[in-house]
Amino acid sequence: MRHSLVLAAPGVLLVPLADVHAPALAALVDEPMWRGMSSPVPRTPDDVLDLIAAADADPGRYAFAVVEESSGAVVGSTSLYDVTLTAARAEIGFTYYARRVWGTTVNPACKLALFRQGFEDWGLARVALRADTANARSIGAILRLGATAEGVLRSHRVRPDGSRGDTAYFSVLADEWPAVRAGLEQRVGLA
C-alpha cells in the first residue's frame, strides 16, 4: 500500500518505498544475497519497479527504502506486512541490504524502528519474522534480535527455481518487547 510513514533509528531513516529507489536497489542486489527470497532476483531497475508495484498492491504492507543517514544512500529495503490491527499482529520481512552494511548497526536499527512502530504506535501483541530454513545468515540475524523460534512450516513456500522450501518462524510478543528493545538499543549505541 502507499503510505506516508517515515521511521527513524540511529543511523537510518526508513522512508516509503517508491519508484525513485529502484535504480539504487537494483545496483545492490546479487544472486547469492537474494537466495532464500520468494521472488526471482531483480536484475534491473525495471525488475525492482515490479517488486515496488507488488508492495503497493498489498493492502497490509508498509514497504520502506532504508536510507543511511551519514551518506544519504539507499542501502536496502524492508517491510511491515500482513499488518492486521484488529488481531494486533504483523510481520517484518521483504528485507535485504547492501553487502557493505552487513554486520553493521543497520539491521538492528531498522528492526528497532519497525518493532517500535508495531508495539508502541500500533499496540500490537505480536510481531513475527520468517526465513527459509536454508538461509542460515537470515536465521542468525533474526535470533540476534532476540526473537523466539516458534517452529518450521514444512514445504511452506515455492522458491524462485520452483523447488519447495521450509519456513522457519520467529516472533516477539508485547511482553517480550522491553527486553528485545533494550538489546537492540544496546546494539545501536543507545544504551
Rank of each mutant, 00 (worst) to 15 (best):
A128Q: 15
T167V: 09
F115D: 01
S155R: 06
T167G: 03
F115C: 01
W122I: 06
A136N: 07
L114Y: 03
A149H: 15
L145N: 08
L153E: 15
G162R: 01
R130G: 14
R116L: 04
A141R: 09
R137C: 10
H156M: 05
S155L: 07
G140E: 07
A168N: 04
S138Q: 10
A149I: 00
T167C: 03
Y169E: 01
R144C: 09
A136K: 06
A125F: 13
R116Y: 00
L112R: 04
W122S: 08
A113E: 04
T167E: 03
W122M: 06
L153A: 11
A149W: 12
G162P: 00
D161M: 08
S171Q: 00
S171W: 00
G151P: 10
G146N: 07
T148F: 04
E120T: 02
S163W: 11
L153N: 08
L153G: 07
F170V: 01
S138V: 14
Y169R: 11
T148M: 11
G146Y: 02
G165I: 06
R116Q: 09
N135A: 10
Y169W: 14
Y169I: 05
Q117M: 12
Q117K: 07
L143Q: 14
L124R: 01
C110E: 02
D121P: 02
L145D: 11
I139M: 15
A147S: 09
R130E: 14
P160Q: 04
K111T: 05
W122N: 01
T133R: 05
R154E: 02
D166A: 03
R126I: 11
T133C: 06
G140Y: 02
D166Q: 05
V152F: 13
E120W: 05
L153H: 09
V158F: 00
D161N: 09
A131G: 08
G140T: 08
Q117D: 12
Q117R: 13
A131W: 03
C110F: 00
A147N: 01
G146W: 04
E120H: 06
R164H: 09
H156V: 05
T148A: 14
G146P: 07
E120R: 04
T148Y: 01
I139L: 15
G140A: 12
A168C: 03
V127A: 05
A136I: 06
R130L: 10
E150N: 08
D161E: 07
G146Q: 00
R126T: 13
V158S: 01
L129C: 06
H156K: 03
R130Q: 14
L129M: 13
E150Y: 00
N135K: 13
S171D: 02
H156R: 04
P160W: 02
I142R: 00
R137V: 14
Q117T: 02
D121L: 07
A134Q: 15
W122Q: 08
G118C: 06
S138A: 14
F170D: 03
F119K: 05
L143W: 05
Y169L: 04
K111N: 08
L112N: 03
C110R: 03
A141S: 10
R130D: 13
P160T: 10
L114D: 07
S163N: 05
G151K: 12
R159W: 06
A125H: 15
R157G: 02
A168S: 05
S171R: 09
S171A: 12
G151H: 11
V152K: 11
S163H: 12
G162I: 01
F119T: 10
Q117H: 15
N135T: 06
L145I: 12
A147V: 00
R154N: 11
G165A: 14
S155C: 11
P160C: 04
